[in-house]
Computed example of a mutant assay.
Amino acid sequence: MTATVGTDALLVAAELLANAARHIPGPQRLELDLDIRSLRISVTDPAPAPPRPRPHRPDAVHGHGLFIADTRSADSGRRARGHARW
């Protein structure tokens, strides 16, 4: 894993955890799954619905978490029942 990939992974994990802490009671679980080709970062939270990204506004103070996760990840997605996976 290169330094850039490691930095991006750390940034994505931090943003997902911060998003769960800010908008719902908080994250319940962080999972990192590394294999030869990829690193999957999963944040589980108690929300019944997946997070909904809003239009990104670069001038806003908040609201960049999902945008950062989407742009720094090769693939991203969200699942209902309290799971967000990137």
Results as ranks from 00 to 15, higher is better:
1 M>D: 09
1 M>T: 10
4 T>W: 09
5 V>T: 13
8 D>K: 09
10 L>N: 11
10 L>F: 08
13 A>P: 04
15 E>R: 00
18 A>L: 03
18 A>H: 05
19 N>Q: 06
20 A>C: 13
20 A>K: 01
21 A>T: 11
21 A>H: 08
26 G>C: 01
26 G>W: 09
28 Q>D: 12
31 E>Y: 06
34 L>S: 11
34 L>M: 06
34 L>E: 15
35 D>V: 00
36 I>V: 13
36 I>T: 14
37 R>W: 11
39 L>I: 03
39 L>K: 01
39 L>C: 12
41 I>S: 00
42 S>Y: 00
43 V>I: 02
43 V>D: 00
44 T>N: 07
44 T>A: 13
46 P>E: 01
51 P>F: 14
57 R>M: 08
59 D>N: 11
60 A>E: 04
61 V>A: 12
62 H>I: 09
62 H>F: 15
65 G>P: 02
66 L>Q: 05
67 F>K: 13
68 I>V: 13
69 A>M: 01
70 D>F: 11
70 D>Y: 13
70 D>R: 07
72 R>D: 01
74 A>G: 14
74 A>M: 02
75 D>I: 08
76 S>A: 14
76 S>T: 10
78 R>G: 14
78 R>A: 14
80 A>R: 04
82 G>C: 06
83 H>G: 02
84 A>P: 06
86 W>R: 04
